Computed example of a mutant assay.
Amino acid sequence: MKFNKLLKFVSSFALSLVLMLGFVTPTFAASTDTNSTTTLNLMAAASTRYSLGERGVDGAYPSGTLLRAFEDQNANIKVNVTYDSSGNLLNQMIADPNHSADIFISADLARMNSAVTANIIQADTVYNLLNNKLVLIANPNTGLTENSLQYSDVLGWLNDNPGTTIAVGDPAVVPAGTYTKQVFDAIDSTTWNDILTHATLYSNVTNVLTAVANNVNQLGSVYATDAKTDSNLIVLATEDVNIIYPIGITNAAMSDTVSRAPASQALVNFLKADIAKSTDLPINGGSVFKYFGFSPAQ
Rank of each mutant, 00 (worst) to 15 (best):
M1T: 10
F3K: 11
N4W: 10
L7P: 00
V10D: 01
L15F: 07
L15Q: 01
M20Q: 04
G22Y: 02
P26H: 11
T27N: 09
A29W: 14
A30V: 11
T34S: 15
S36M: 09
L40A: 13
L40R: 11
S47I: 06
Y50P: 00
S51G: 13
G53A: 11
E54Y: 02
V57Q: 07
A60M: 06
Y61G: 07
S63D: 15
L66E: 01
A69N: 12
F70C: 10
E71N: 11
E71M: 12
D72H: 07
A75P: 04
A75L: 14
N76W: 07
V79N: 04
V79L: 06
V79T: 03
N80P: 09
V81P: 03
D84T: 07
N88E: 14
L89V: 10
Q92A: 14
I94W: 05
A95G: 11
P97C: 05
N98M: 09
H99Y: 13
I105G: 00
A107H: 01
D108C: 02
D108S: 12
A110P: 01
V116G: 01
I120V: 06
I121K: 07
Q122G: 08
A123F: 03
Y127G: 00
N132T: 10
K133Y: 06
L136A: 02
I137D: 00
I137R: 02
N139C: 10
L144H: 03
N147A: 10
S148M: 08
Y151P: 09
V154I: 06
L158H: 02
N159K: 13
D160Y: 10
N161W: 05
N161E: 07
T165N: 15
T165K: 15
G169H: 02
D170S: 10
D170G: 00
V173I: 15
A176Q: 13
T178Y: 02
T178V: 08
K181H: 04
V183A: 04
F184G: 02
T191V: 13
I195V: 13
N204S: 10
V208T: 03
T210D: 04
N215Y: 09
N215E: 05
V216R: 04
A224D: 12
D226Q: 14
T229H: 05
S231P: 01
V235F: 01
A237R: 00
T238W: 10
E239H: 09
D240M: 04
V241L: 11
V241C: 03
V241T: 15
N251T: 13
M254Y: 05
D256C: 12
S264C: 07
S264K: 09
V268C: 08
K272E: 10
A273C: 12
I275K: 02
S278K: 12
D280Q: 13
D280T: 11
L281F: 12
G286E: 09
G286V: 14
V288L: 12
K290L: 04
Y291L: 10
S295F: 05
P296W: 03
